[in-house]
Design a binder for these strands. Structure first.
Length: 585
RNA sequence: GCCGAAAUAGCUCAAUUGGUAGAGCAACUGAUUUGUAAUCAGUAGGUUACGGGUUCAAGUCCUGUUUUCGGCACCA
């Protein structure tokens, strides 16, 4: 999709369109007051205070109509430059604009733009005339907190997009529609990946057999990779006493995001929101020599977080999920090499899954946020500069995000965008000097003295749940053979004559651990083929007279129309090769 | 959590201004015995998410709850 904000022409066009929107809203809602109307990647929006009035989705058509009317009139857009005092005078009855003006530096030129009966404070630039604004569409309305702060009043936000030609606009709208069809929630329903139920609760998905196969294969995949890299896997309880999180420091920072306390016989338990404290205790269970480090403790661990109800989304954001977690206990001199190994693993895994659209985010603390972040300037500077150095050494492109760090340290996150445009972290690698401190972790150094290890928290697939959600979207539900819930579907042409051979092939494949089904229903071949294709099963076998006679199989690949014929042995070899090469590199 | 919208058969959707809840697919039964994306006929399927109210009459209007959707805020 075109990034409208980055495109010079479209940026100006959409910004002007935001003004056109404001003007139309002003005509229809005379009491409207306007905050800001910026250009974003997807188009533009305007935040508006309508007092007691409400814009509903059905009102968008009405507003669009007014916008078209104004555009047709074709007023010129005129720039005017003011001093701060003049600007304050001009917008004296608009508290929102006064707020903006007052925060501008004295002496700077302040500009505003006028089109017909509407003037707005704005840096510009704009198109010459509203006449150019013809191919636009208002897309959605929503509430949005003033200045992005939940403590403030909620304004109304109207989103839209504008293009130079009608073709471009229609193409864009078609693209948005196409993306909706890629939404993992829709595909998951079609492909029977997971379900939810009111009686279980929101954000708590139930994995159906097809989803469970995916889940299991991914667990096996990453576990094997990690074992080859020297990780040890453990299982730890999904709960602990609240005391554990008081020691780790999580209690102070995150108890509101945890499921509430369970009290019994004077003890207090919580469902765990993360696994770090458990793994710290496993490290502490033994005395460690400098020779033993790094020690890598991994777990496919189920965690529970009380996410805000409005944040929940399919498998992408849930209240219980399975983390592909590990904690790497390293000596200070090993931070760089170990961090590099994690980045290498991330790159390797993404390659295995053909994930190409992602970016690295270096998440740093916001030094002014004294509440969220653990206070120790020296520690933070050391940690942040270490990560930066490794990334630079690896020549990895990344962007920095202030205020996105964990409370205990900076991190490298891998960001992806979902089909419907949500930006999410998939993988993460976090540097932590704090938890080793809190749990008084040590190793014995060369000189016999106790030293403090450093911890790297990392998750490669992130959460299995979210990873599957993303995988469904990038593959459109057509999974590579090794992941496909059903890998081969056998269709005997005639039940009476071909079922025996079909069963024979079925048993052969099953013996090779191929996930295979046989569709011997009394339905026409075309009917069964159609269903096989809509289920996106990679291989569909057609077995009839010819195949029985020659001891062969004829197969059709998902999404293709031609049929290939191979001997049964060759076919099995083909499957095995495809599974092996894609699965284990 | 906040602003807004929605919830009708397993799924996708209909149901004039309040006036007998329907269709396609799926399921089941029977016929058909099939060579690459939907064979034909029949049967069954509903406290219209859940609770309360208005009305002679509520899927439709009001109200509370739950869940879902679009954003915002959040995301250890």
């Amino acid at each position: 999709m075109k990034n409208i904000k980055e495109d010079e022409k479209l940026n100006v066009l959409n910004h002007s369109c935001a003004h056109l929107l404001a003007q139309a809203v002003k005509h229809l809602y005379p009491n409207a007051k306007f905050w800001v109307g910026p250009v974003i990647e997807e188009g533009f929006y305007y935040d508006i205070d309508l007092g007691d009035e409400v814009v509903k989705e059905e009102d968008l058509a009405k507003i669009e109509k007014e916008m078209k009317k104004i555009a047709k009139d074709g007023k010129r857009i005129v720039r005017e430059e003011l001093t701060k005092e003049e600007a304050l005078m001009k917008f004296h009855d608009d508290p929102y604009k006064i707020d903006l003006i007052e925060r501008m530096e004295d002496g700077n030129v302040i500009s505003c733009y006028t089109q017909g009966d509407f003037t707005d404070l704005c840096r510009g630039p704009h198109v010459e005339s509203v006449k150019v604004l013809r191919h636009f569409k208002l897309l959605k309305v929503s509430g949005a907190y003033w200045k992005g702060d939940a403590k403030n009043k909620m304004l109304q936000r109207i989103y839209g997009v504008c293009f130079e030609t009608e073709e471009q606009l229609q193409e864009h709208l078609a693209y948005l529609e196409e993306m909706k069809n890629r939404d993992h929630r829709k595909l998951s329903k079609d492909l029977k990946i997971y379900m939810t139920h009111d009686l279980v609760g929101q954000g708590l998905p139930l994995w159906l057999p097809n989803g469970a196969f995916l889940f299991h294969e991914l667990e096996e995949y990453i576990r094997e990779k990690e074992i080859n890299l020297g990780y040890y896997h453990v299982y730890t309880p999904i709960m602990a006493t609240s005391e554990l999180y008081k020691i780790s420091g999580h209690w102070d920072h995150y108890k509101d995001d945890m499921f509430p306390l369970m009290k019994r016989e004077g003890e207090e338990f919580v469902l765990r929101p993360m696994n770090c404290p458990h793994h710290m205790l496993i490290y502490k269970n033994e005395l460690h020599s400098y020779r033993d480090l790094p020690i890598r403790i991994g777990e496919l661990a189920h965690d529970f977080r009380f996410e805000a109800s409005g944040a929940l989304c399919g498998l992408e954001r849930v209240r219980t999920f399975c983390q592909n977690d590990a904690h790497l206990f390293v000596r200070p001199d090993q931070i760089e090499s170990e961090f590099k190994r994690v980045v290498d693993l991330i790159l390797e895994v993404y390659k295995d899954f053909n994930i190409t659209e992602y970016s690295f985010r270096l998440s740093l603390r916001d030094p002014s946020d004294k509440e969220k972040y653990y206070q120790n300037d020296e520690m933070w500077e050391k940690a942040e500069s270490t990560l930066r150095k490794v990334l630079d050494d690896l020549k990895i492109d990344y962007f920095e995000a202030v205020g996105e760090a964990a409370f205990y340290g900076p991190k490298l996150d891998v960001q992806i965008k979902t089909a419907i445009g949500h930006e999410l972290s998939l993988s993460t690698c976090q540097l932590d000097f704090l938890l080793p401190e809190k749990f008084d972790l040590t190793y014995i150094d060369t000189d016999g003295s106790k030293k403090r290890p450093v911890v790297l928290h990392r998750a490669i697939l992130g959460s299995i749940d979210r990873f599957i959600a993303y995988l469904i979207e990038v593959t459109k539900g057509s999974f590579p053979l090794w992941l496909a819930p059903v890998q081969v579907n056998i269709i005997p042409v005639n039940k009476e004559y071909h079922e025996a051979y079909a069963t024979e092939v079925y048993k052969l494949l099953q013996k090779q651990n191929i996930r295979v089904e046989i569709d011997d229903r009394n339905e026409k071949l075309g009917y069964r083929m159609r269903e096989s294709q809509t289920r996106k099963i990679p291989y569909t076998l057609i077995l009839g007279d010819k195949e029985v006679e020659q001891k062969t199989v004829s197969y059709r690949l998902f999404g293709q129309e031609n049929t290939q014929t191979l001997s049964t042995e060759e076919f099995i070899r083909l499957l095995q090769e495809e599974i092996q090469t894609k699965k284990r590199k």
